[in-house]
Design a protein around this nucleic acid. Structure first.
Length: 506
RNA sequence: GGCCCGUUCGUCUAAGGGCUAGGACACCACCCUUUCACGGUGGUGAUACGAGUUCGAAUCUCGUACGGGCUACCA
């Protein structure tokens, strides 16, 4: 009844963590937190040949950055460890043997060559990919087709073998998916999956069932690509631990790219990140850009991810993590796949930057400036700068482009924008402006603007004609926030000095 | 090929038998702004197709088409 909610996310450490994976994490996390349960991170590295060193720390760091720390993981431990399947190798054999003993599985001695031959020989126009199932089982070398003595002999000779599940011939497996409702399969269409490989490692199918049981997982959310193998897992649960103990399943729809399933390649091709954080493949040295490094706020990242396939039924689109936890419900997750729209992703980030407190943005922006070689920035100034420019920043990294000039006087000016219309009158205007500003004792944007306009009027110049030149004097080009706001933050001395310096170049 | 899942503006989606199918992103126009943005107002734009059930269907049923997933000693 009040079964503890424990949801798990179990990626394979084969490289970066893409959007689909992160969304699975998010939904797991939200569901667990909403119900006061634990979020478990397990690493599924049962295929050691595809294992990439460093991947699991990377996965953990991605979760941490997004604010989705697991309660239990290979990195921070937990009471049901180890959380890395390769560290649990010895556990699985026992269960596989148990299945053999109970008649639900069998030893198979077929070599890779023999399997290939079978797939070739049984291939027909109507069956282009023959499976190892009840129809071919008796024609292969396994403990079902062989006599007990023969099997015994092969086992004693240590002949390489696997353990395969013996799928029933015509049984309908029905289960309830939290997103899709009732889903059913006929066991005749699923093959005799390998449970324990020749090297003694379990396959995903065995490991996921055993681990979910041992770790007392109550809910398992995973990608839609697992839906077809769900009957295998359900059967294993039935044979091993009983269906009453089985977690509740939810198969999440896929996230699609511009052309079908979202891939790493799509990111490179269309210029958007697909991984949570930068990932450099140690084998190929290939770098895949992450949302973090691109300048996304973690709050925006989880917000946009959550809304890709879920909404709360209202028109609200901006959610804090706390709101997501409160309002999330797995039943409202769509069953159809969603195409990732980078433009909308950028909008989410922009909204979050606008919404963020200046102080919370400050450390990130300071780091950004430090990386660009601008250090020792006064906090008071930095906060004023951030609040002035944040409305125009889509990415965290935009803060540099939109405000570097506050800390670096221009060396060059966009003279082409000024020169053609430059004349004696303007020269005189700026000379007077300097005199006026030097005497100013109220260095505020509004009073600076007022004096500016008064002097322009006295000289019979339209303010518009000298406003752009002033902007270019202060920042070097046709960009930035309001000119007088810039001047206010720059301060009296710096502003006057920049005008004087630029005047010599015009 | 077989099995499973899916299909509402270009994209993400709302509407769970009943108003002119609503919102957001993007796009376009206008306003604001003597830089660029932000912001404001408005606009273009969708129920894949065909049957059936019903007084009434985006919604329920069936078929077709299209898309996706699986079909490994990968996860």
């Amino acid at each position: 009844m009040d079964k503890r909610v424990r949801v798990r996310f179990a990626p394979s450490p084969t490289g970066g963590l893409h959007l689909g994976g992160m969304r699975t994490v998010l939904y797991n996390y939200l569901f667990a937190k909403k119900h006061g349960g634990d979020f478990v991170l397990r690493i599924e590295d049962t295929d050691q040949s595809r294992y990439v060193p460093g991947a699991e720390e990377y996965i953990y760091n991605c979760l941490k950055w997004a604010g989705l720390e697991p309660n239990e993981s290979p990195v921070n431990g937990g009471q049901f460890g180890p959380y890395r399947q390769s560290d649990r190798k010895d556990l699985y054999r026992k269960y596989a043997e148990q299945l053999v003993k109970d008649g639900y599985a069998y030893y198979a001695f077929d070599t890779p060559e023999e399997l290939e031959k079978m797939r070739h020989d049984f291939k027909t126009e109507h069956n282009p990919s023959p499976q190892y199932d009840s129809s071919v089982r008796m024609k292969m070398r396994n403990s079902v087709s062989l006599s007990a003595d023969q099997t015994e002999g092969l086992l004693n000779e240590n002949v390489k073998h696997v353990i395969r599940v013996k799928m029933p011939e015509h049984e309908t497996i029905t289960f309830s998916d939290m997103i899709r409702g009732k889903v059913s399969f006929d066991t005749s269409v699923v093959d005799d999956k390998v449970l324990l490989k020749a090297d003694g490692m379990p396959t995903y199918h065995l490991a996921v069932v055993v681990d979910d049981h041992l770790m007392k997982i109550s809910h398992a959310f995973r990608g839609e690509e697992w839906l077809s193998s769900a009957p295998v897992h359900i059967l294993l649960w039935k044979y091993l631990f009983g269906l009453n103990e089985m977690p509740q399943w939810a198969h999440l729809p896929l996230i699609l790219g511009p052309n079908g399933k979202l891939s790493k390649r799509d990111g490179a091709k269309y210029g958007f990140p697909v991984f949570a954080m930068n990932w450099t493949d140690p084998k190929t040295n290939e770098l895949t850009e992450g949302f973090k490094e691109k300048g996304f706020l973690p709050e925006a990242f989880i917000n946009l991810l959550a809304l890709l396939g879920w909404n709360d039924g209202t028109e609200q689109e901006i959610f804090t993590k706390e709101e997501l936890i409160e309002k999330f419900s797995i039943e409202r997750v769509h069953s159809g796949g969603a195409k990732f729209d980078y433009e909308k992703a950028k909008w989410f980030n922009h909204e979050w930057i606008k919404k963020s407190e200046v102080r919370s943005l400050e450390p990130e922006v300071r780091t950004l400036f430090n990386e660009k070689g601008i250090t020792d920035i006064d906090s008071f100034i930095l906060e004023k700068v951030i609040s002035l420019v944040k409305d125009r920043c889509t990415f965290l990294t935009d803060f540099y482009d939109h405000s570097f000039f506050f800390f670096k006087a221009p060396e060059k000016w966009d003279v082409d924008a000024v020169k053609p219309k430059w004349n004696e009158a303007k020269q005189l205007f700026f000379a007077e402006l300097i005199r006026n500003y030097e005497l100013s004792n109220d260095w505020k944007a509004t009073s600076l603007e007022n004096s500016f306009k008064e002097i322009a009027a006295a000289n019979q110049i339209k303010p518009g004609e000298v406003l752009l030149p002033l902007r270019i004097m202060l920042v070097g080009g046709k960009f930035g926030p309001g000119v007088f706001d810039i001047a206010e933050i720059l301060g009296k001395e710096e502003t006057i000095s920049r005008i004087k310096k630029a005047l010599t170049a015009f």
